[in-house]
C-alpha cells in the first residue's frame, strides 16, 4: 500500500475529531509513533499517529491549538 494512503487516513481521522471540537489533551511519543488523547466535554478518544508526515501534521495542529488558547 502506498504510504500516502495511510498518511491521508491518519490526517483525516485527526481532522475529523478536531472539526468536532475535540482538543488535544496529551501526546505520548514512543517507539510506535505518537499516541494522542483528545477530549471534548466528557468524551475522550485516542489516536495512534504512526506515519511521519501525519506526525508533522499533528505538530502543526498542536501549535494552532496552543496559539488559539493563548
Amino acid at each position: 500500500m502506498s504510504e500516502f494512503v495511510q498518511v491521508a487516513a491518519e490526517i483525516a481521522q485527526l481532522d475529523e475529531l478536531l472539526d468536532k471540537e475535540y482538543k488535544i489533551e496529551s501526546i505520548i511519543e514512543n517507539l510506535d509513533g505518537s499516541q494522542v488523547i483528545l477530549k471534548y466535554d466528557n468524551h475522550q478518544t485516542e489516536l495512534n499517529i504512526t506515519t511521519a508526515d501525519a506526525r508533522k501534521y499533528l505538530s502543526v495542529k498542536l501549535k494552532e491549538q496552543m496559539e488559539h488558547n493563548l
Binding site: 508533522k56 505538530s59 502543526v60 501549535k63 496552543m66
Partner: peptide
C-alpha cells in the same frame, strides 16, 4: 504546512506537556 523545525517541534511538545 507552516515551517517548523525539529527544534521548534520539540520545544512545542515540551511546552505543551
Amino acid at each position: 504546512l507552516p515551517s517548523m523545525t525539529w527544534n521548534e517541534r520539540q520545544a512545542l511538545h515540551h511546552a505543551f506537556a
